[in-house]
Design a protein around this nucleic acid. Structure first.
Lengths: 226, 226
DNA sequence: CGATATTTGTGATATGTATCACATAGTCAC
DNA sequence: GTGACTATGTGATACATATCACAAATATCG
């Protein structure tokens, strides 16, 4: 952990930019920055937390193993606030957060965070915008899960990595087949089979965790049709 | 439509209670109240909207027919703000809202709403709390859809109506079997079969849309096990 | 009230995916 | 480098659920 001068931070959130000088000083006093390696736990579900976590750099999964099986609920790419929900409501984390790439996270005291919301409308408005975006995305995830078959879900996942996370047709999957399955709600064997089919059909090229999308249009169609 | 004195409204939201007198006057000037019968459309997806909708009384479904098939994303029981997300982001409704019971809705000018967020931290904080709750619920919906089998989902739906909507073991389903299926992501035939099985096993009593939960504990188990 | 449309139930079948079993490849520790 | 462990691929099978087809019940409307 290291104290940081939030005023000088070049990775401020859209919300933090709205803070005035005094507030930024206060943030500095109640904010600590932590560096995480891939696979490290940022916080665990059911633990009490008095911090809001802001992800400056990196990639994080929100997940739960409530039901004996690990279920990945969402990937969150920096910059982003993590899981305000549980913390704001009753200060219990409803879900776990684990890094999947090297990540830099700020832990902000919840009281200071709440104070900023109450005092600074611009800050609050940015938070509300972000939460609204999350809600739309959650709806889309629900749609996908409820409606699409396994190959549509895998296509979805690949397009998501290519477009939202890596901005590239070529990328290293940060997940095992098992984790991909946990995320999309299908078995690891089915993930293997489907990736194999996509490979055979020259829709993607796969070599272990290395993925190249060869025919994005077709992948998009598969995702759409379910 | 009728103009309403928001100051005197006995159905104010948790957020509106935080408004000061001047703001309530302003709300009155930019708020109209509309009464809906069941099955009426409050707003349609892809339409531009300059209002935030607050549901004072009633029950509403958020849904989409993007993919030719109607998919119900969420039920929203009064009191609640509806779908800030789309409106706040780019003023396009991302989803449709249709009443399923008689509903009283307030249409609030988006600019006034935004002004309140900027000016009144208590108001903003209440909105953030509500959005946070929504997010947790969305995660749970995702978990259910990704993980549970059909009978678990139907059990879920029944418990949801009994506990969250009607607070009673006996209630009239506001949905057809088709709609129940659209909501839980299963076919109408499967819904029929599963309800029939629950009936035979004396877990519920069903007579058309009239449902009585006879063995809540067992239903809970079915929901848990998936 | 009767005619028509809509909703619901139920059997037979098809299909997709989980599960199981096992082989193979890759990774890590010492 | 060797052994142990983990991740991955693949075939056979079982199972859940969609789909189709049709009958029965219910609601709607002139």
């Amino acid at each position: 952990m290291q104290k940081t001068l939030c005023q000088n931070c070049i990775l401020q959130s859209d919300a933090a930019i709205k803070l005035i000088k005094n507030q930024l000083n206060e943030l500095t006093d109640h904010c600590s920055r932590v560096e995480f390696k891939p696979g490290e736990i940022i916080f665990k579900e059911n633990a009490i937390s008095t911090n809001v976590v802001y992800i400056q750099r990196g990639l994080v999964k929100i997940h739960t193993d409530n039901f004996s099986k690990d279920r990945i609920l969402r990937l969150t790419k920096a910059p982003s606030y993590l899981c305000l929900p549980g913390v704001l409501g009753d200060s219990i984390n409803r879900f776990s957060a684990t890094t999947i790439e090297p990540t830099l996270a700020c832990f902000i005291d919840i009281h200071v965070f709440k104070k900023f919301i109450l005092e600074n409308g611009d800050f609050a408005y940015q938070i509300i915008l972000a939460l609204s975006q999350n809600e739309i995305k959650s709806f889309q995830v629900s749609l996908n899960l409820a409606q699409k078959q396994a190959n549509g879900r895998v296509a979805d996942a690949l397009l998501y990595f290519a477009r939202e996370i890596y901005n590239s047709q070529v990328f290293m999957l940060p997940f095992s087949r098992q984790e991909l399955g946990d995320w999309m709600g299908i078995s690891r064997e089915s993930v293997s089979r489907i990736l194999g089919e996509f490979h055979s059909a020259h829709i993607i090229y796969q070599n272990g965790k290395e993925i190249t999308i060869l025919n994005e249009e077709l992948l998009e169609q598969i995702s759409q049709k379910g």
